[in-house]
Amino acid sequence: MRAEDAERCAELEIILFPGDGPWPASAFVDELRAPHVRYFVVRDGDGTVAGYAGIALLGNGSGAESEVHTIGVDPDRQRRGIGGALLGAMLAEADRHGGPVFLEVRTDNDPAIEMYTRAGFAVVGTRRRYYQPSGADAYTMTRPAAADEVKGGHP
């Protein structure tokens, strides 16, 4: 993602998350300045951002972990693998960083929950009224560190 993509991402936020405090363009620009955060976009044929995603790489060594901040895909382009591709890019960054990966997802967002489950995430808790101002609940999901998955262990 580049700073000039922030306006389009903010437009998509309003469409995708109208009742949950959609991020303004300035929030995306601020995120891009943070050295521990990685943001990705998928563009359609004319260069328009069709989807975006961001992850924070936190801690280091045995304390390393990552947190998915957001994934958003233009409603006209959903169910075409864009979200999965963005998630894959973020998980590759997380695997290089090390440690487990965490995220929150609305409890009523079945397509996202299915995508995360396919990628190895499991629900570990519920955050009541997590999304504001809507008051929607969120599941907290986690995926073990890549090395733990290979060994069959847990974080």
Rank of each mutant, 00 (worst) to 15 (best):
S134E: 03
Y39N: 12
D74A: 12
A136E: 14
G54S: 06
A3V: 15
T126N: 07
G99I: 00
T70F: 08
G59N: 07
D76T: 12
H97R: 03
G120T: 04
D30P: 00
G83P: 05
D95K: 10
S134G: 00
D20Y: 02
G61T: 03
D20A: 10
T70R: 12
G98E: 09
G63T: 12
L86N: 02
G81R: 05
G135H: 03
V49C: 04
S26D: 15
A122H: 11
G88T: 10
D44W: 01
V42D: 08
A3I: 13
R8T: 14
A119T: 05
M90V: 06
A85I: 01
G21L: 08
G98Q: 00
D74V: 00
I55G: 08
F28H: 05
E67G: 01
Y130K: 02
L16T: 05
T140Q: 14
V105P: 04
S134N: 07
G98H: 04
G99Q: 02
D74R: 06
R96Y: 00
A6P: 05
R129N: 13
E149G: 01
T117C: 08
H69W: 12
L32S: 09
A56T: 05
A122I: 12
R129T: 02
Y116N: 08
V124G: 02
A53L: 08
G125A: 09
Y139A: 10
A92N: 13
Y116W: 02
A53V: 00
F102S: 06
A122C: 10
G152R: 10
P111N: 10
L12C: 02
G59L: 05
